[in-house]
Design a protein around this nucleic acid. Sequence first.
DNA 1: ATAGACCTTGCCGTAACGTTAAGGTCAAGA
DNA 2: TCTTGACCTTAACGTTACGGCAAGGTCTAT
Lengths: 249, 249
Amino acid sequence: MEYTIKKFAQLSGVSARTLRYYDEIDLLKPARINSAGYRIYGAKEVERLQQILFYRQLDLQLAEIKNILDAPDFDVEQALNDQWQQLSQKKADIERLLTAVEQTLDHYQGEKKMSDQEKFMAFKKQKITENESKYGAEIRTKYGEKTIDASNQRFLNSTAAQLQEKATTEQQLFEKLQAYVQNTQSDLAKEIFDLHKQWLSYTWTSYSAEAHRGLGLMYVSDERFTRYYDRHFVGAARALNDIIQQFAH
Amino acid sequence: MEYTIKKFAQLSGVSARTLRYYDEIDLLKPARINSAGYRIYGAKEVERLQQILFYRQLDLQLAEIKNILDAPDFDVEQALNDQWQQLSQKKADIERLLTAVEQTLDHYQGEKKMSDQEKFMAFKKQKITENESKYGAEIRTKYGEKTIDASNQRFLNSTAAQLQEKATTEQQLFEKLQAYVQNTQSDLAKEIFDLHKQWLSYTWTSYSAEAHRGLGLMYVSDERFTRYYDRHFVGAARALNDIIQQFAH
DNA sequence: ATAGACCTTGCCGTAACGTTAAGGTCAAGA
DNA sequence: TCTTGACCTTAACGTTACGGCAAGGTCTAT
């Protein structure tokens, strides 16, 4: 039951490099070294490695594992409690990161959807007036409510209403922003900031000043955003960002 | 609006070392180097650093951030989606680790609680027989059901019942284990293994063969476990571990 | 002129290995 | 017996995002 390093590695499923490393840090020494300088492992080493792998599977640090295995009166339960605490902390951190990424993604997709929706709404509006003028009331009795699922319609209505609100907010925002760049008034700036924050609330589920400021910076640095905002008037993106940086804390 | 490295660091809240590192990896170069070789930063660098910090706050790698900021047509949305994927994966990993740690902790605490509960049950049993023999039926009408909240009682009953089952399983386990060490029969070994697995089911909410084997190794390597198992008979812990290693896959 | 605050580059250390390079060992077949 | 291929060894660099330290140059105020 003696193994050279490769046999031992294959037997246990770890790499030979890992075993050399464990030797180096005194976590798992070979049973002996033969005359050629080869590491030779035996049954006791198999067992110790199993234990190492058990604790490693719980993501404990190798130094911790060394403590657990080498100090006979080491408080394993305390170590596991610590590990639980650390993992819980990491989990909380990651959840925070996930929502931050989601917010940013929501925003990106919100921008895209917005312009698509705007096109769609404009198209629809045009169609309605077209149909009205062409066929009048007749068409509305022929098609209409009957063919559309009621709940689906309610959903579409509420989404449309929200989009309408958002669009209104946005329109106000740019009107005031244009007034602001032509004649700087600080009270107007605060109004604009509040409008932008409100506008954000249609896509962000929770607010963070840091993210808000980051977003402002993207308006001026990412040309897709700049183009979108400068569609209203030249310099809109930069003016908006200035205001955001001024008020978001 | 020109800053030496320390001013810039204080302004932005990162360390001077970090700024030197960002310079080194070409993530954020100073606006210029003055005659003394000092790094001088300006307004554009403030802005770029803000953007870096925005993405860093999402836990993106610096190389990734460099791509986003330097390649004008870089797909930021794709990058954020990737990041979301990675974070979700990490979260899933951590959740797996948490349950593994919890299982191990449950087991440790289960061992402790078990012996406490056993003491408690033995104590209670003794009290009941004492009282029965001393006061007979009289006492049961005097105290009893009336003073005890019914739902609480039900809970205690079910817990007690489970503990009873667990204790019975354990007793069977050790009877068969003792028979096994005196006269090795392989069919008995499988029975013992199944009993132990069943016994585990009273404390583990989900089963993993790897954890089972790890547990077996702890029986022989951690003296608190060894003592607990060798209370039944000498060599019990080792015999049980041998069987676990043989059957748990 | 000198002290103290600031700046520079260069290098080591972090965690747990993967990878590569240069060179020694072993068993088997020609 | 020689060679080949599989295996072994140590040494050293690379990974990530810096922290910390040392040796030495610069600036500002007293």
